[in-house]
Design a protein around this nucleic acid. Structure first.
Length: 281
DNA sequence: CGTCAGGTAGCCA
DNA sequence: TGGCTACCTGAC
């Protein structure tokens, strides 16, 4: 068991903000499968306890070395985002493995959380390396080579995502995706959306959650609804418009704003029946 | 039953 | 560019 003292970090807010799918809560511990590892972690105030990973890994994975207050003040433009930040203070954008992130979000498209989790889990159980922690067992997100020619893939109920995933596995991997870290956001997005099954939304999720592109502003149905409602935007705007607007309005760390708004809207569904509060256009 | 779900790709004006 | 539409599957 290892320990770490943290500040400006909330484990539950971070894990439950929809960035990752492979975690479960058991007896007060979060059991997490990520980066080819199975580890457990819990938080009590500013004290973290964990097993199966070291301090360096935890610090990096949860981005505990980011200048949190600086990021928040950069995106804190109005009372809407302020409320979202206040409600979910301590939420951070994690640093996932880009291949694992790509697999997760390709499988997430046009689906729902229970099904996404089921799909990813069965993919891992049938293809991934066995991981252990004490008496717990789990399976890693499979590597490209473990997917590319798999015959079991068609029994995972992935639907049309199956061919996206298989073709993706033939075309890319963690090392190739890492090259997008150094590019500008625009170039990185252009490159990543050339890959099969990766469009604007999934591409920006990967850029944001695993490639350090913090100005990415992925727009899904929740963000689109929330932005239109919260900021009283024209209902005819497309997700592309919202995307551009979000990036422009929130700036360098727009991705953090997106994550706060996303989590806030999902946890406060009643807000959608109220009057919009702020106009920014 | 129909609708919807953390979209993408392909086609057409 | 912008506006359709088909698409696997299962939860609700």
């Amino acid at each position: 068991m290892q320990k770490l003292t943290v500040k400006n970090f909330d484990l539950a807010q971070t894990l439950e903000s929809g960035q990752i799918f492979l975690y479960t809560k058991i007896n007060g511990w979060y059991l997490i499968t990520a980066k080819n590892k199975l580890f457990k972690i819990r938080q009590n105030g500013n004290k973290m306890e964990f097993d199966g990973a070291d301090k360096k890994f935890i610090t990096n994975f949860f981005a505990l070395d980011e200048p949190y207050e600086k990021i928040l003040s950069a995106i804190d433009k109005d009372e809407i985002i302020s409320a979202a930040i206040e409600n979910h203070y301590g939420l951070r954008i994690m640093r996932q493995d880009p291949w694992e992130c790509a697999v997760s979000f390709v499988l997430s498209q046009n689906s729902n959380i229970p099904r996404i989790t089921k799909n990813i889990s069965s993919l891992c159980n049938e293809h991934g390396k066995e991981l252990r922690l004490g008496n717990q067992t789990a399976y890693a997100i499979p590597l490209p080579k473990e997917i590319a020619n798999s015959r079991k893939l068609s029994s995972m109920s992935l639907g049309y995502r199956e061919s996206y995933l298989r073709e993706l596995a033939k075309k890319t991997n963690t090392e190739k995706l890492r090259k997008l870290e150094k590019l500008s956001f625009e170039q990185a997005l252009e490159k990543i959306t050339e890959l099969p099954g990766i469009g604007d939304k999934v591409g920006q999720c990967i850029l944001l959650f695993s490639l350090g592109q913090h100005s990415a502003f992925p727009v899904d149905v929740w963000i689109e609804r929330a932005m239109k409602q919260f900021y009283n935007l024209d209902s005819g705007l497309t997700s592309k418009h919202i995307q551009t607007l979000g990036r422009t309005y929130y700036g360098k760390y727009a991705g953090y704003a997106q994550q706060f708004i996303y989590h806030y809207s999902r946890n406060n569904k009643h807000l959608f029946s109220e009057e919009p509060e702020v106009s920014i256009v």
